[in-house]
């Protein structure tokens, strides 16, 4: 009995003897510490004077001066607000568009559906990032240059979202739909009453992935913004931290920490949900 229990835990066919850490534990912990080191180190540096930070004086006194210096040097609050607006706009657009399109692909038969579906999937590879040159022209022509909508529009018809929701809707038993129809629901009623509630976990997963992606997105926002009133955090941070700006590294660390804090704190609190979300969104 006990021998069997000892050999079964998931990693390592054998449990290490108590006391000594196994080679696995050692490796896993070493890698974890290496992986987290850049963040821990920057966090440490952000709370110390630039000179102490660069001298690696572990005993140096803690200070908030870097945060104060970073805070007054750029309109962070505005950048935060812009990023919040941006991720909300994109998510709202994606939820509506992908729901409708996913529903169409999952439950409506029409000529050309397969071809269209492949065309949509193609967008997984024609990345908006690669098309910056022409999208810049298109967004400008539409009068959307330097607007939140201009940053968000290319991402709204997300092939990834359409695909995920199509899969989710396909798994809903047809009987549920028929029952709703007997009760007098129309096409949109069925979508609203049956399909959307059934796909709730997929929506949650997709929303988390979308927010995390666009909170962090940089290249396209850099291209289509040129004023403080629209720039998201990442672009603001890059301007702040550019070598030409001559800001010292402890202050840059403070600014970096400030800008990643909301997402990072959210991640640490809802770690399980985030990991689940990425998992669910990733498995096709």
């Amino acid at each position: 009995m006990s021998a069997r229990a000892e050999t079964l835990p998931a990693t390592g066919l054998r449990l290490p003897r108590l006391g000594l850490p196994s080679l696995d534990a050692l490796g896993a912990w070493t890698l974890a510490l290496i992986w987290i080191a850049p963040l821990v180190f920057a966090a440490w540096a952000a709370f110390h004077s630039p000179r102490d930070a660069l001298a690696f004086d572990i005993t140096a006194p803690w200070t908030l001066d870097n945060f104060a210096a970073a805070w007054v040097a750029a309109p962070w609050l505005r950048y935060f607000f812009n990023t919040m607006m941006l991720v909300t706009t994109i998510l709202a657009g994606q939820l509506v568009l992908c729901t409708l399109a996913g529903y169409a692909f999952a439950r409506f038969a029409f000529p050309g559906r397969e071809v269209l579906f492949y065309l949509v999937l193609l967008q997984l590879f024609i990345l908006p990032e690669v098309l910056i040159v022409e999208n810049y022209v298109i967004v400008s022509r539409l009068g959307l240059f330097d607007t939140i909508l201009g940053i968000g529009a290319p991402y709204m018809a997300s092939a990834f979202g359409i695909f995920l929701l199509r899969q989710a809707f396909k798994q809903v038993p047809k009987e549920l739909e028929e029952a709703a129809r007997v009760e007098g629901c129309g096409w949109l009623g069925v979508l609203w009453r049956v399909y959307i509630p059934a796909a709730k976990p997929v929506y949650l997963a997709y929303a988390l992935v979308s927010v995390a992606t666009h909170w962090n997105n940089f290249l396209w926002p850099l291209v289509v913004t040129n004023s403080t009133t629209t720039r998201p955090l990442t672009v603001g941070l890059s301007l702040f931290a550019a070598p030409e700006s001559g800001v010292n590294i402890a202050v840059i660390s403070a600014a970096t920490l400030m800008s990643i804090a909301p997402l990072l704190v959210a991640f640490l609190i809802f770690q399980r949900q985030f990991l689940q979300a990425f998992l669910r969104a990733g498995i096709r």
């Binding site: 992986w35 963040l39 920057a42 990442t234 997402l263």
Partner: peptide, 16 residues
């Protein structure tokens, strides 16, 4: 955790 960070922020961390 690195997955949750913007690449720009990651670059700032690595500058150190």
């Amino acid at each position: 955790t690195p997955t949750m960070l913007p690449m720009i922020a990651a670059a700032n961390l690595w500058l150190f």
